[in-house]
């Protein structure tokens, strides 16, 4: 229960432990079946997985193709008449600053996803490296890493990020935000990978590798990493959603790129110009809807990946 949705801090609920875990990937008859069959039966048992994947695919398509089909330059202020309700030229209308809301939503989805993926990639790589090292080698390395993670996990990321972002406000771009968020995005991956490695390092094949004269580094790279790869994917997905959460949260406070139409900044601007009081519903609904889809998609995907990714869950069942 210590793992959580970094930075909102919503604790990730224990994976739905339904009793129908019993047939799992990798058990006896499974390797004989076709890959598609296994995938299908997996999806049937974990409907959250395909739903989450579909939602995210939809958003990626929306942001990716949207950029090609719709002029995203319109997301800059003063590119259209302000305060227009949805019309033929601006299907989602325009905001108080004359940005086209459709362009803002497309560009914002793109920027926000990019921020999350960069931050999470850096965080997962650094975190896994630390997690592998501290879990496998133990000793003082483990103590030091564990202490630092303990201290850092006590404080919600967003508080630290507020201090950092507030101190260098003004110079923030959506890229530099990704780097700032990655400063803290490694904490949970470290913890998660470490706890997996603690279990795996006592397994037979690791002993065999050790006896055959492999060095610790070799064992990590050639034995542990390949075995934990699915788990690392799940850790990464969780990290992306946590990073996006942190980015959108910071930006909604105004701590973000002032001249880039990210989703979080859009939320900030709509509060800044009291879009509600002015009744600009077309400015509010699309970005908020996209953010919600984004979070629900990631949440479903990562809870769907849980069984597939967690080697210990798989073992329990055997």
């Amino acid at each position: 229960m210590t793992k959580g949705h970094a930075s909102t801090g919503k604790p990730i609920p224990a994976s739905p432990k339904s009793e129908d875990h019993i047939i799992v990937l990798g058990t006896t008859p499974a390797h004989e079946r076709q890959f598609m069959d296994r995938l299908l039966s997996y999806c049937r048992r974990n409907p959250a997985f395909p739903i989450g994947l579909a939602l995210l695919c939809f958003l990626v398509t929306f942001a990716g193709f949207g950029r090609l089909l719709w002029p995203v330059e319109l997301a800059q202020p003063l590119s259209a008449t302000p305060y227009l309700p949805p019309n033929a030229q601006n299907p989602f209308g325009t905001d108080t600053q004359g940005r086209d809301v459709l362009a803002v939503t497309i560009a914002g989805t793109w920027l926000t996803m990019r921020t999350g993926i960069i931050a999470a990639a850096l965080g997962t790589v650094l975190g896994s490296a630390l997690g592998f090292a501290s879990g496998y080698f133990g000793g003082w390395v483990d103590n030091v890493v564990n202490w630092i993670v303990d201290v850092l996990l006590t404080v919600p990321a967003i508080l630290i990020l507020v201090v950092i972002a507030a101190s260098i406000q003004g110079q923030l771009s959506s890229l530099s935000m990704a780097f700032i968020i990655s400063l803290l995005a490694w904490r949970r991956p470290t913890r998660q990978v470490r706890s997996q490695v603690l279990v795996m390092r006592n397994m037979g094949y690791v002993d065999t590798a050790r006896l055959s004269g492999m060095s610790g580094f070799e064992i990590i790279v050639r034995e542990l990493v390949p075995n934990l790869l699915p788990y690392l994917v799940a850790v990464f997905v969780l990290a992306v959603s946590a990073s996006i959460l942190a980015a959108v949260g910071l930006q909604a406070m105004g701590l973000g790129p002032q001249n880039e139409p990210t989703l979080g900044m859009t939320v900030y601007w709509m509060m800044y110009y009291s879009a509600f009081l002015q009744g600009l519903w077309w400015w509010i609904v699309p970005p908020v809807f996209v953010i919600i889809l984004l979070f629900v998609g990631f949440y479903m995907l990562s809870s769907g990946l849980d069984e597939f990714a967690n080697p210990r869950l798989r073992q329990d069942i055997r």
Partner: peptide, 14 residues
């Protein structure tokens, strides 16, 4: 599950 995934403030906006 859907509500759990959405941050507080977005539910607030809705």
């Amino acid at each position: 599950m859907v509500f759990a995934a959405v941050p507080f403030y977005l539910v607030g906006l809705l």
